[in-house]
Design a protein around this nucleic acid. Structure first.
Lengths: 153, 153
DNA sequence: GAAAAGTCGTTTCAGTTGAAACTATATCGC
DNA sequence: GCGATATAGTTTCAACTGAAACGACTTTTC
């Protein structure tokens, strides 16, 4: 049997690194903007293309519809996002940033890119491309091994 | 301002991929061995070097001491791990695998490596080395940005 | 055109997590 | 030595998460 060292076990390494990065970003967003991760993810996607349903947001952010629902409510209550009736389908609404929301986004986005840059400046251009491609392939392989879900190790 | 697309944002990609991989592994372990991730992590580290305290396990697995405590209790109750008194320091115990635990480990470890292989077979040898090195550097950078913790994005 | 089946979003509930408080033991400072 | 401080591990509690049940609306089927 080949030797199993936790420290060299890819799923473990991936989980640890991801959690580290996530914690850094989550802390920064919360402190600077009072945003949780699900909220910030919604804002990022809504900014890309306004007039989007929660169901589409769930697909785009890979978050559960419950998480999307709660994040959307929080953003609406805070006046950052507005719901317009969806004439084509009255079960859903179309979400868009309010003026305030857009203002916040214009602050959040550069900050996000700045934080990402701090992490990415460890890698040269070629490495970044390679990393991205590897992540794609790893994700695809993992999806085959087990169908779905959010998990632990 | 440079464009921010969630899909290309590294912390998000990392989180999604890590969660995917984690979910795949967690499901497999639970189904095959009835082990949760914290439990399996403890087993892996205890197998590497028996006679270890929970505090050391926490460092080795980067898990909270509460998580370690609960996982250790579960393993002891299940008869997979035994606690020996630590003569040098009676606040702690020294944990080791029981015979049953060792037997289970001998099944779990190859399965873990097999699952990892399924994911890693997407990458050639050079890529694996590169990925590992990049993860190290990314983790280090993230640790600088924000000190500690487990998080979200 | 109305019953059956499906989908969007919310609410409820049970499980998991970690911060903080606590107990027991150990070490430090004098 | 012994009171003050620190550490190992457990328990408690509040927050977060997602599965399942639900309500509202839509589509399909006959």
């Amino acid at each position: 049997m080949a030797d199993l060292k936790l420290d060299q076990f890819l799923p473990y390494r991936l989980s640890v690194v991801s959690n580290r990065v996530s914690a850094a970003i989550a802390t920064a967003y919360d402190r600077l903007f009072g945003l949780r991760i699900p909220e910030w993810r919604l804002i990022a996607v809504i900014a890309e293309g306004p007039g989007i349903t929660q169901q589409a947001l769930g697909v785009a952010t890979r978050m559960d519809k419950v998480t999307v629902s709660r994040a959307a409510q929080a953003l609406v209550e805070r006046g950052l996002v507005a719901r317009a009736p969806n004439e084509g389908d009255r079960r859903s609404h179309l979400l868009a940033l309010t003026a305030t929301g857009r203002l916040l986004y214009d602050q959040v986005a550069p900050k996000a890119l700045e934080l990402e840059a701090k992490v990415l400046e460890q890698l040269d251009a070629g490495e970044r491309v390679a990393l991205s491609a590897m992540l794609d392939r790893i994700e695809a392989a993992a999806s085959e091994v087990a169908p779905e879900g959010v998990g632990a190790d």
